[in-house]
């Protein structure tokens, strides 16, 4: 978590290898992430950024592309895409052009687009911001399911209640610095930094 401009999105972009750090090193799944290793590591990382971009094609194709990129055979693509669409409850919209989707539906397609290739690490940037409760519920249940399958999910959120519902571990970013990291219980009940306390209590910190 963290206030706007604290570096949450940048952190996700660094983890997805879309940007590279000026200093320091990043390890994903024990492998160092560099410009050279990024493509290989990224293949196993799925990222959904805020207001995700849909391709000008059907919902089905939007999801299928991820598998086509990876050279899956047509039969496997069909099976996996239909499964992924079912998980995000969009199986009936498969033929629709993705550009006509609502914000919530687009978020779900973006999530399906990532789930379909079964990545080890899922990065989410405010996936339910500005969404109605029904869309948020679908997304949250998908994330719970992913976690139960043993995947790592890094979720950036503004919503403390959502964090409480979903998280195992919490971290707080302030002005590009991770001032607190620990399991959920410690984070909320006995944080080591006073600013974390104030953040949880709803004070403005920056």
């Amino acid at each position: 978590m963290g206030p706007s401009g604290s570096g949450k999105t940048t952190l996700l972009r660094l983890l997805d290898g879309l940007e590279f750090p000026d200093s320091g090193e990043i390890y994903v799944g024990g492998k160092r992430l560099t410009m050279e290793s990024a493509p290989k590591i990224r293949a196993n990382v799925g990222a959904v950024f805020q207001s995700p971009v849909m391709f000008d094609a059907s919902v089905y194709d939007n999801v299928a592309f991820s598998l086509r990129f990876r050279g899956f055979p047509a039969s496997a693509i069909k099976k996996n895409v239909e499964e992924a669409l079912k998980i995000v409850q969009l199986e009936d919209e498969a033929k629709r052009n993705a550009l006509t989707l609502s914000g919530g539906e687009a978020q779900r397609v973006a999530l399906a687009r990532v789930l379909v290739y079964n990545p080890e690490l899922i990065l989410l940037d405010e996936p339910t911001a500005n969404l109605d409760p029904s869309n948020s519920m679908i997304i949250e249940s998908v994330l719970r399911e992913a976690r139960s399958e043993g995947k790592t999910v890094v979720l950036v959120t503004h919503n403390i209640f959502q964090a409480k519902r979903l998280a195992d571990k919490m971290a707080l970013l302030l002005a590009g610095e991770m001032i607190e990291i620990g399991d959920k219980k410690t984070f909320f009940e006995s944080p080591s930094d006073s600013r974390t306390r104030r953040f949880i209590d709803g004070d403005l910190v920056c």
Partner: peptide
């Protein structure tokens, strides 16, 4: 599934 005509 009706596939779109892609570049190739």
């Amino acid at each position: 599934m009706a596939q779109k005509k892609y570049m190739l």
